[in-house]
Design a protein around this nucleic acid. Structure first.
Lengths: 228, 228
DNA sequence: TAAGAGAAAATTGGATCCAATCAACATCGA
DNA sequence: TCGATGTTGATTGGATCCAATTTTCTCTTA
């Protein structure tokens, strides 16, 4: 399964990868909610396949942290409590600056332009779901120059597993204090343009850390959607 | 698969986990070498099971980074080149200090004593394979207080995937400059005893970083064992 | 009414068989 | 002699069936 990273997964010729890709989209888009049970047979019927590729798809998703498996029992969309989510943010605070540092020397003018465009759209945007997409795209775009593919996978995994909760968070907070996000983004982008790795790391760490602290002010985001 | 972390794997009642656990041991101990191909049928015969649990075991190992899968083609014990190994060390430099910081407040006298004992044994030891075991145990023991299980899994994964190359490295270098390792360990342990998180992080980062740089002086460690 | 034990239904784990794909080898041609 | 191409063998991916476990529902009892 080298390729389940290369090609998004949804178009793969291998059934298990295709199924994993589609389930992943459903989880990230919120169609499947955290805590929701995933029954092999249901998914198999939905895709017109047997349960076998579904089982492998569930393992793929488990390895991406999107699904929890319990032996001889079943699969559930991964849930996080506040402590687990804060832990992920703490890991992001350590790893994403490295991804940025490794990326900055390889970013070309094209990407830099794209990053600017995204930030401009964030500033003029007022749809919450759209913000979620744009913010994710902006951050991940900053790391596209990073040649350490393993690191990129880990970062993407962090974003994937927290996606539902970021969505819930922006719905709770609304557009308040967006100026802080924009200021942090602008400082980060400027550091990247100047190829200033130290400043880049600093602003990025601060941005993630502040978000983690804001998140902890809204524990209701983690109130149940379905039984564990 | 919650349990493949809880119980080591080798004693699990679920065949796929049991097989994965045994294969993992074989990889870590060097019975299976990096680059070596793993044929489903061979493993199935070896364990008296069908190929199905072997397939799932391979997926488990893949998610732990110990095995590379190629669609409709096969499985190989993961190989690293120097650049990939250096990348893992760079990630360790960022993440393990966090694991240490989260661990230090929860370490009790028992663990501290065990850590000291391990370091003493390292200093009086002169067997290379034994050093490998002791060093690994010492470092991982420093993180046992860390409540972020996801982080512990990532750290263990780093150690697992680089194990073969650490073995090759100590065989190449021999016991030279062991005093540096011992000094770093002693400073790290002292910081932990003082519950000094800043110093602990600092010495740990330096230790990993210096090892990474030493490693890069011996690229021959990564010369082939089997075709990719 | 709530809690616990037991039985039935639902769901997962594993074995066997078949199809599709890949890799290596041999053959052919330049 | 080297490279390209076709064919055959080996190996993986998927479907179906069966066994084992878990979950859930019901019935009993405090």
């Amino acid at each position: 399964m080298t390729s389940d990273v290369v090609e998004a997964g949804s178009t793969s010729t291998v059934a298990s990868q295709r199924i994993a890709g589609r389930l992943r989209e459903d989880i990230l888009s919120g169609v499947l909610q955290p805590g929701e049970r995933i029954r092999q047979e249901e998914v198999a019927a939905q895709f017109g396949a047997s349960r076998l590729p579904v089982r492998e798809a569930l393992r793929i998703l488990h390895s991406q942290g999107l699904v929890q498996l319990k032996a001889s029992s079943g699969a559930w969309v991964s849930r996080l409590d506040l402590a687990e989510c804060e832990a992920i943010y703490k890991m992001r605070e350590r790893l994403e600056p490295l991804a940025l540092a490794e990326s900055i020397p390889h970013l070309d003018a094209n990407v830099l332009g794209h990053i600017d465009a995204l930030q401009s759209e964030i500033e003029s945007n007022d749809d919450q779901d759209r913000f979620l997409e744009l913010d994710r795209e902006l951050h991940l775009l900053c790391y596209t120059g990073n040649p350490i593919s393993e690191l990129n996978r880990m970062v993407q995994r962090f974003w994937d597993t927290t996606q539902s909760y970021r969505r819930a968070f922006v719905r709770v907070t609304g557009p308040q204090r967006m100026w802080v996000v924009n200021a942090e983004h602008r400082l980060l982008i400027d550091a990247i343009r100047r190829r200033d790795i130290s400043d880049g790391e600093r602003f990025l760490t601060a941005h993630i850390r502040r978000t983690r602290i804001s998140l902890a002010l809204h524990p209701e985001v983690f109130d149940v959607g379905a039984g564990r």
